[in-house]
Amino acid sequence: MKISMDIELTDIPGQLVLALKPVSDLGGNILSVLHQRDKKTPSGRIPVQLTLEIGEQGLNRLVERLKERDVNVVRIGKERLKESMMVLLIGHIVHTDLGETIDSIDSTGFAEVVELSLSMPGVDKKSSASVTLSAIGKEELKEALNILERTVNKKGIMIIPSI
């Protein structure tokens, strides 16, 4: 997936190469680098904007490696999840492994559950939840909804999507 990332380098030579090397090591592809040598952050670091293509697993390891190399990661392309929708769930949401339900979306790499409100009126009663899904594009959002529908149908939970 395509992501953008803002990083900050210490102001000594060779730092940019040091920061970019893990990207290719992890199978990523650098799409653009915006490096303004004359700009500095208040703490005296050099800001760099990266756009790159990398998998979800690779991204997590990239962030770790950058930290190891004293590169500050100040922002990871939050806007990559551009499309959102809300759905309601009604049923035994918690007792049918809520964690697994959320994971079914989060593990896709292209969509996430970004918000969840739960209302539990009583132990034996059905719970209701509103779930906000975000995805990197319209098609991915539709696919995320399909995955969620399949997951909750198996658990006997009713899903109410928007029109």
Binding site: I90, S117, P121, S130, M158
Partner: peptide, 16 residues
Amino acid sequence: TEITLEALKLADDAGY
């Protein structure tokens, strides 16, 4: 028949 008051409230809070 399965629609709960809580679901209506959650929808309402989000503008639905």
